[in-house]
Nucleic acid binder design. Sequence first.
DNA 1: CGTAGGTTTGACTGATCTCAAGTTTGGTGG
DNA 2: CCACCAAACTTGAGATCAGTCAAACCTACG
Lengths: 247, 247
Amino acid sequence: MIVHDEVAARALIQKLEQFGPLGEADRATIRALPYATRTVRAGQHLVREGSTHDHCCLLIDGYACRHKMTADGGRQIVSFHLRGDIVDLPHLLLARADHNVQAITAATIACIPADRLRAAARGSPAIADALWRDVLIDASIFREWVLNVGRRDARSRIAHLICEFVTRAAAAGLGSPDRFHLPLTQEQIADATGLTPVHVNRMLQSLGQDGMIARKRRDFRILDWRRMREIAGFDDSYLHRSLAEAA
Amino acid sequence: MIVHDEVAARALIQKLEQFGPLGEADRATIRALPYATRTVRAGQHLVREGSTHDHCCLLIDGYACRHKMTADGGRQIVSFHLRGDIVDLPHLLLARADHNVQAITAATIACIPADRLRAAARGSPAIADALWRDVLIDASIFREWVLNVGRRDARSRIAHLICEFVTRAAAAGLGSPDRFHLPLTQEQIADATGLTPVHVNRMLQSLGQDGMIARKRRDFRILDWRRMREIAGFDDSYLHRSLAEAA
DNA sequence: CGTAGGTTTGACTGATCTCAAGTTTGGTGG
DNA sequence: CCACCAAACTTGAGATCAGTCAAACCTACG
């Protein structure tokens, strides 16, 4: 079902304006894009590795992640996403998916035909630049994850994941270090940090005992944001948020 | 020193044509770009984290890597690069470097002012698409590295690194699985895989004892390419080479 | 030939994993 | 409203992969 969906257009405009102002013409171009809005349930796959896609998904609400599998069934989450994120910009120009995209919670997404989005980018330098920046920031986050998984110990890794999550969530209006919901099971945290669920559990407890975090189920509070960032080695410059602030 | 450098232009054209044919006008645009060619010695930094840059570097010859550091001095290499690679496309649109770029061997690079390259991309959809694809493939490689470092054991990690290296080197005409030079110290391999140099050494020996590889100093031969790929869990689709083949 | 950087080896330590058994939680149907 | 169930979370004990530390050995190069 292809419909003109105001909510999706607004979300995309808001996303792209994080990276610099759009002109009225640009906004009109975006509003004219066809969107197919869908709701998916928790756990549902939006993209399967190896499949071909001719559209891009914008996450309107809910949470999602990208992940890859090893030959022997190990799973690695390589990024997570929240509302406003464009989860598969790679399909704008790459035919085959090299990873999976899966909804973590129930979610609603807007799918945009890749050729239409490409055309929009070609017609408008502002739109093209914004999409570019989104991809470049995505890549920057992957680099930070390589560092996180490769060079930090279990506690720091988990702390870093939490710091990144809350920073991005807060920017999207979804809570603050004081109070936020982390919609991940401990198994998913393990898959994102390259650890086992058992060890994630122990490290979360350790962070709790040290007075860094408090949690009830998946509702978290960071009690000492400064020390938490220190333990995590978290420096948000890799998120390139200054672009957003400047705008 | 800004000069019109035929070698650099040719390298860039060749790189971009991997992703699809360029028209004569596109090639002329690229030839008209100003290049500043520099040679650097092994170990020299091309980009420092946190610094601002207004140009992009094309690696003409030699090897380089990108890396990041943790607060406590741990180093993680997040990618390596060989001739033909554009090592800092992120600076096309992101002001501050979020990682370091360092020459691994003596190298020669061509620097292109970012604004000129941006202008070229704006003027030519073919150039824009090619640069896009390069960035998207870069990101795909980072995802694979997150998986490699997060979910594979030491032996497989190193095997995977070797498989990726030889695949990309062979594509650039720098040897074959039969015979190639891996210009990395064991410490650099350790920094790329999230291990210690000591353990890298032992795992390389283990791969040798199992008849997977033979090496003399840093000259390698893969003795059983099929089993090597198996151990590594290496599937080259994340490199999106079909684009190159199709062209 | 002397030196520095890189590689190799050995013995010991320790972080993280594995396996396996509970316990809690939230949702569902009676 | 309660009983039950599956999924998620916790806990403990023992095993193992990879790290640490320290010394010795190459090898290219000045």
